[in-house]
Simulated scan of single mutants.
Amino acid sequence: MSTRSRAVLLTAVAAVAALSLSACGKGGISGGGGDTNFVTGKLGIDTVPAGKRATAPDLSGKTIDGKALDVADYRGKVVVLNFWGSWCGPCREEAQYFAMVSQQYQGKGVQFVGVNTRDSSTIPAVAFEKEHGVGFPSLYDPTGKLMLRFEKGTLNPQLIPSTLVIDKHGKVAARALEALDDTTLLKMVEPVLAEK
């Protein structure tokens, strides 16, 4: 295979990988193969028993309003991570439910954090949060590098929107790869919040 052919092939593979990561959809399939230790429930929520969970990677950086944020600072709380983009239709559908549930659980041991991705500037992201009444912070991840920090074969975010629930010990407990309403979101959060 010539150098040019290899370059074309590598470019095509990279493009497919980028498209799959940035895909905006209403659902998806779980990543990894073999014994991943997670189970997909009836609502499309993947969960992992407490003793078999992977630790969440470093998720820190600047928020869409320019403030420093480190998800590790919320250790001891359940963290709901929502990966979204202002350009994503299903993200617009679910935003009202995230805004509502985050308000209901304020001060009750749950911290919501958004991860805005694939927006070329923070202007549409800030407008999105204002329009949908989102009051929790969102990390700005225009290139998707925070998404890629999750190990393959774990409960990693794979498309937009994806939602992860991180337990009080900083481990990934649950994942959904589709837009959520308040009922489904609470079915992800409440069991993890009830854990000792």
Rank of each mutant, 00 (worst) to 15 (best):
H132N: 05
V79G: 09
Q96K: 15
V8F: 13
G25R: 11
G170L: 04
N37S: 13
D141C: 09
F112V: 03
R92E: 12
F98I: 04
N37R: 06
A179L: 12
L177R: 06
K196M: 10
A176T: 00
M1K: 15
L193K: 08
T163S: 07
L139N: 05
F112G: 00
L10P: 00
E178S: 10
E93G: 06
G89N: 07
A194L: 05
T55C: 12
E131P: 06
G51V: 10
G76T: 05
L159C: 08
V115R: 12
L10H: 05
M100D: 15
W87K: 06
P124M: 08
E129H: 00
L159V: 11
E129T: 00
P191G: 12
D167F: 11
F150Q: 04
I29T: 14
A179G: 12
R75M: 00
C88E: 05
P90N: 03
V101N: 04
A56V: 09
D119T: 13
G34P: 03
E94S: 11
A23V: 13
S121Y: 04
D35V: 03
P49Q: 06
K168T: 13
L185T: 06
T40V: 07
V172H: 07
I29M: 15
S30F: 02
P49H: 07
P90D: 01
C91Q: 06
G32A: 08
G114N: 11
V110W: 01
K196C: 10
K62C: 11
T40I: 05
G34D: 06
R53T: 12
S86V: 03
A50W: 14
T63G: 05
L146V: 09
